[in-house]
Design a protein around this nucleic acid. Sequence first.
DNA 1: AGATTAATCTATATAACCGATAGACAAATA
DNA 2: TATTTGTCTATCGGTTATATAGATTAATCT
Lengths: 150, 150
Amino acid sequence: MLTNKGKYGLKAIVHLAKLEAGETAQVADIAQKNNISKKFLDAILLDLRNAGMLRSKKGPGGGYALAKPARTIKVGAVIRALEGPIAPIGCASRSAFRACEDCGEIDSCPVRSVMTEVRDAMAGVVDNTTIADMVRRSLVKAPAEAEYVI
Amino acid sequence: MLTNKGKYGLKAIVHLAKLEAGETAQVADIAQKNNISKKFLDAILLDLRNAGMLRSKKGPGGGYALAKPARTIKVGAVIRALEGPIAPIGCASRSAFRACEDCGEIDSCPVRSVMTEVRDAMAGVVDNTTIADMVRRSLVKAPAEAEYVI
DNA sequence: AGATTAATCTATATAACCGATAGACAAATA
DNA sequence: TATTTGTCTATCGGTTATATAGATTAATCT
């Protein structure tokens, strides 16, 4: 599940990816342009900075910018930095495995088996999509029909 | 994300799928054999019954049983009945679409675009796996290597 | 140096949700 | 009618999500 934290983080990093080279954006500006609480965004950008995806500069004319090219930042990395493992259940995680306390035979657990497939399917998307891809998508309208089977 | 509710529900329904034809199992027994709180399981089985997947019989010798063949019950249906939509975010759901209040142009939202792909990947697994598949998996040990990249 | 700007840190608050429990009630069977 | 077992209502502690407030630090400009 993607929480607001993850959603805001992705929006902010896409915002930063659209800046000119060398340019920075201030938290207040990113927040206002994307309808995000400034204080909440403070904490989010700090997490992304500590994860090495952003760099920051204090003082007048300061702000945030990407620390590396957008095409090298995976969507999955952003989500994991802000929300932890993407697996639907701990025992299905490959990066942060954790057995259920209440389960017996983990090797033959059918829930774990299915959820591992789900995890791989999710990771297959988010680990093969970059922030550069997201920028590209934000510049074109989504296809009209079919997408809107609601 | 799969909560305990979903996990317990899947375990219980797999348990029921293993019964002989015509046989029923009682909540207390399912709970004990699967390490689940009986009262919590009460509510879970009720949800699954109201969703038409289980039938129940009261009184001595009563209990729960599948309402239809295990091969016709999709994992996705169980999860949706217990936890709601599978999509990681409301605006990416096909069965229960809901726009974000804070978002502007939904058609060009890159978060929604990626998350729709994630949703489809997840649904591709859970809507193509049945309870009968889970029973089958529970009878064989999981493959040893590769699976355990933890 | 002093003023200003903007990120950073610490602390707290509110609300929702998860997981579980208790107990009364209803229905079926013997 | 007594017993068994599912059904319903209500509650409740703990955790997590979602912020908000205020003080602090660092950089820049005048």
